[in-house]
């Protein structure tokens, strides 16, 4: 019947890094028109027991951008279905559903950025604040043959970290990785960073 049909968004995918999840799709193009999108989700429970019910996303029902931060919608370590549709005035496209369900346990965990400084005779570590999900395993040692490696677990919100008393003239190295209890996974270690303490080494 020649009625205008709005194409459904294509190429849905989720980009998830350090427990921040963003759903993206290819924009629907209609020259000189502004397209709005609506995003909805279903947790595993809904899919199993109430599959006709979808929940509007917190931030993207509607949105004009071809992406949606769904971090606040993913609130359990179960698989989620996600769908998007386009709207132009009274025209609405069909829903496009993410081909593979998304589970936050697939998020990419990157080694944490860190900064090592001295505070008097203390080694001070500033770690990237990645949010309440993240603990840090900080490993540090004195840069000399046979030195013992120490490990410190840093809980969320306990930054910066004082490591230990250091000796003048000595060098110390530090590396760190993140751990996310919600998904039981950790990142790779960051590259070790070393610092030399000012002053003369103490006589033996």
């Amino acid at each position: 019947d020649g009625a205008a049909v709005l194409p459904a968004p294509q190429n849905l995918s989720v980009r998830s890094v350090n427990m921040k999840h963003v759903l993206t799709w290819s924009p629907v193009i209609v020259p000189e028109e502004i397209i709005h999108y609506s995003v909805e989700y279903q947790g595993e429970y809904e899919s199993l027991y109430m599959s006709h019910i979808w929940i509007p996303s917190s931030w993207c029902s509607p949105t004009q951008r071809p992406e949606c931060d769904i971090t606040e919608d993913i609130t359990a370590t179960v698989s989620y279905s996600l769908r998007v549709r386009a709207t132009l005035g009274s025209l609405t496209s069909a829903w496009s559903t993410l081909k593979h369900r998304f589970n936050q346990n697939s998020t990419i965990l990157t080694p944490p950025r860190m900064e090592i400084t001295m505070d008097g005779f203390h080694l001070l570590i500033k770690l990237e604040d990645l949010g309440p999900h993240f603990e840090f395993f900080v490993s540090y040692w004195r840069k000399e043959p046979g030195a013992k490696e120490h490990v410190k677990v840093v809980r969320p919100g306990v930054l910066p970290v004082y490591l230990e008393m250091v000796e003048p003239g000595a060098a110390y190295c530090v590396k760190a990785r993140t751990f996310v209890k919600a998904i039981g996974r950790h990142s790779a270690f960051s590259q070790p960073e070393c610092v030399k303490v000012q002053g003369e080494a103490l006589p033996l």
Binding site: G43, E44, E46, I55, T75, A76
Partner: peptide, 18 residues
């Protein structure tokens, strides 16, 4: 659905499910 509390319902149901 009637009370418009699906978001909270989903959080509780899916975490109990886990």
């Amino acid at each position: 659905v009637e009370f418009g509390i699906l978001k909270s319902f989903s959080i509780l149901a899916n975490n109990f499910f886990v």
